[in-house]
Design a protein around this nucleic acid. Structure first.
Length: 538
DNA sequence: TTAGGGTTAG
């Protein structure tokens, strides 16, 4: 197929039938898959017309033609065509033209093909602030935060100029890393450079502070904004939601509706519902969902909103009601919804429903190790050791590989990362010894290791050893060693925190007199004096 | 004349 295309293009004669045939097959397949006949037909028509127009005017394709065609290939569906165009461009002299390069980069970045985007970026003879920002934000949007930060630093050393969009993109990466010190530095820089107040940048700051655990600063930015968009409101609502501050979420939402300057969108309602769930406001959350169904907020309920309701009911222990709800809702439940239901079964020890939900979930997501862990927890609490063993066998059979757990803690602008049973940190011996010491101390105060968090078929002693090697324990122990007494510990985990580590962190807060702020994949756990803001439900 | 970057959720 590639051969046809180059041939046609190089002759400057776009034979409609040959060009169309392979494309039509491709697009019909795509259309059938997505049920978007009309839209796709328009898209392909647009691309072909672009080529046709250029060539029928009797002009050879030039840098502007390529840039225009590449722009029409933006999005996941256009990437194959875009690649073919790229292959063709390589054979011309236009590859390094800044217009062509920037269109290529944008096309790849928007399709999530960051390596290809980077390849184009590195080959460009000149790069301006927009190109640098595009590639940095490409990394940040894919959650490749370390790469985004590293590239920003390199480009800055090379003399890149930055503007408010660059900072907004960088802040996204710093939010992901929960790199508060770095984030503050960017904020200071923004203040010093006396940039005008850009809403986008302020929104990023709200988000950065909240994801770095600093709710106060987050709110302060929000309060100081002369102008706000729905994203500003959403960012601050999400901030309170993730910190489990349900009342604040509801109050702010009411204020938003009173002020009536911006209309809520689907994310607003999602933030409010999940805020009610994380904050333990079941009734309020349900009330808001039913109000949403009447159309009062002008937002149609989507599957994620239904998911929040499942979470609300599950949290309240209304597990069978939650199950009924999933059966009656107008969407097919997703793995995330079954997962939230399974979590509810674990917390409320509903083995019967948990069993069937768990099986359903394992069918849908056989490769997600986290599901096995929660189901195993549930079986273990119910004393169903046979079922635990069977689960372990199933995992082995399916060759499930657990995404490596990783936790980190920031000290003086350095992110110290720990992997499970880490041997790489320079102070590893000291850290391991500290975890052992803490374990002995905590056991005397009532800490009992929760061995059901280990899925390997090893003896109890081994299981305990594995548990003590969990990355969040290493990061906490390192924090205790490396910071003065009384300083709060902020630990970030890439996955959901396990029950045993949650318990361990509570002992750290209680016996070591430290506030522990633990950010996991879903939310913050603010632990003070042995009590966690999550209310044991997550 | 003609290109391109951004913030919230998932």
């Amino acid at each position: 197929m590639d051969g046809h295309d180059y041939g046609i293009l190089s002759e400057g004669n776009l034979s409609t039938s040959i060009w169309y045939l392979p494309c039509c097959i491709n697009f019909l397949l795509m259309c059938a898959r997505f049920g978007m006949f009309i839209l796709c037909m328009h898209t392909i028509a647009g691309e072909v017309i672009d080529w046709n127009t250029s060539i029928s005017r009797g002009t050879e394709p030039n840098e502007f033609t390529f840039a225009t065609v590449l722009t029409s290939c933006i999005g996941p569906n256009g990437i194959n065509l875009g690649r073919q165009v790229h292959s063709f461009i390589i054979k011309t002299s236009f590859e390094s033209h800044v217009y062509v390069g920037s269109s290529l980069l944008d096309m790849y970045a928007k399709a999530g093909r960051i390596h290809e985007a980077r390849g184009v970026f590195e080959c460009l003879p000149e790069r301006d602030v927009v190109l640098c920002t595009a590639i940095i934000s490409g990394y940040a949007q894919l959650g490749l935060d370390e790469e985004a930060l590293a590239l920003f630093r390199r480009l800055q050393m090379e003399g890149m100029s930055s503007n408010y969009v660059t900072y907004a993109s960088l802040l996204t990466a710093l939010s992901g890393l929960a790199a508060l010190d770095h984030g503050k530095q960017v904020h200071n820089h923004v203040i010093r450079s006396q940039l005008p107040s850009y809403v986008v940048l302020q929104n990023s700051l709200i988000d950065m502070y909240s994801k770095c655990g600093s709710l106060t600063y987050s709110r302060r930015i929000f309060d100081s904004m002369p102008e706000r968009t729905v994203i500003s409101w959403n960012a601050v609502l999400v901030a309170y939601s993730k910190h489990g501050k349900g009342n604040e979420v509801v109050e702010l939402f009411e204020l938003m509706r009173e002020e009536n300057e911006v209309q809520p969108d689907n994310i607003t309602i999602l933030a409010v519902l999940s805020g009610c769930s994380h904050g333990g406001l079941e009734e309020k959350g349900l009330e808001i969902f039913y109000e949403m169904e009447t159309g009062r907020f002008g937002v149609e309920p989507e599957i994620e909103h239904y998911g929040c309701v499942v979470d609300l009911l599950g949290r309240a222990g209304r597990v069978s009601e939650a199950l009924d709800f999933t059966k009656k809702m107008p969407f097919e439940p997703t793995a995330a919804i079954w997962g939230s239901l399974l979590g509810a079964c674990r917390v409320h020890l509903n083995v019967e429903i948990g069993d069937s939900v768990g099986r359903r979930l394992l069918e849908l997501e056989p490769d997600n190790a986290g599901n096995y862990v929660i189901l195993s927890n549930l079986y273990a609490y119910a004393g169903r050791w046979e079922a635990v063993r069977a689960l372990r066998e199933l995992m082995k059979e399916k060759a499930v590989i657990k995404e490596p757990g990783r936790s980190w803690i920031e000290l003086d602008q350095i992110l110290h990362t720990f992997h499970a049973s880490d041997r790489s940190h320079p102070r590893r011996e000291e850290v391991s010894a500290k975890v052992m010491e803490l374990s002995v101390e905590f056991k005397e105060a009532g800490y009992v290791p929760d061995l059901s968090c280990v899925l390997y078929d090893v003896d109890e002693e081994q299981k305990e050893k594995i548990l003590l090697g969990h990355s969040e324990k290493l990061a906490l122990a390192f924090g205790l060693i490396a910071t003065p007494k009384g300083v709060p510990l902020r630990v970030i985990k890439n996955l959901r925190i396990c029950v045993d580590c949650h318990n361990f962190a509570k002992f750290v807060s209680k016996l070591k007199g430290r506030e522990v702020s633990l950010r996991d994949k879903n939310r913050f756990h603010q632990i003070v004096g042995g009590i966690c803001s999550c209310g044991e439900y997550w």
